[in-house]
């Protein structure tokens, strides 16, 4: 017997609305704080190189996820600002699925000296993009930087 057989008046079924009345405050973390401050103050993108396995994380991390090695101050070094475009896309819809007037270009960039890739905006290209081409980070002016990954305005093809 289906439980639905007990529904004598289908109009009894109704919708109840609710939400989750919370918001979140995220710290950048120990490594994130240092990474973002260097971006803001020095205009430099830092990575950390694992002394055990040689992997270079960008953004810089506190530890190596491959072997749990602590990535201390001695492992920090600037990378880029140029790098190789690994992949790219032109995005025509926003978060709610609404069509955009002009596409937003995004890409994955392996900065020179990095092992990991970074997701970021690409400058609207004038010519064809291809994987492997060289792109370079374009930073916002120093007085507009706030200590956020968006202090890098975008990457532009060289």
């Amino acid at each position: 017997m289906s439980l639905l057989n007990n529904l004598e008046h289908p109009t009894d079924a109704r919708i109840w609305r609710g939400d989750l009345p919370v918001y979140h405050r995220y710290t950048a973390g120990v490594a994130g704080e240092k990474f973002l401050r260097a971006l803001k103050d020095q205009g430099a993108v830092y990575g950390t190189r694992c002394p055990t396995c040689g992997y270079v994380y960008v953004p810089a991390r506190l530890y190596c996820e491959r072997d749990a090695t602590h990535l201390d101050d001695s492992t920090w070094a600037p990378v880029g600002p140029a790098g190789a475009l690994v992949s790219f896309s032109a995005v025509w819809v926003d978060l709610d699925g609404k069509r955009l007037d002009a596409p937003q270009w995004v890409g994955l960039v392996r900065l020179k000296g990095a092992s990991s890739v970074l997701m970021h905006y690409l400058q609207t290209p004038t010519g064809a993009l291809h994987a492997g081409m060289t792109v370079q980070a374009v930073l916002k002016p120093a007085n507009e930087r706030v200590g956020s990954i968006t202090d890098i305005a975008y990457f532009k093809p060289l």
């Binding site: 995220y26 710290t27 973390g29 120990v30 704080e33 506190l62 491959r66 749990a68 602590h70």
Partner: peptide
């Protein structure tokens, strides 16, 4: 309130646990 992210806290605990028994990841 930790400055560490949850991922960093996790690693801190893991690194100490591994250190305690001299084992590696």
């Amino acid at each position: 309130r930790s400055q560490e992210t949850g991922r960093e806290l996790s690693w801190e605990a893991v690194s100490k646990a591994l250190e305690s028994c001299e084992m590696s990841l």
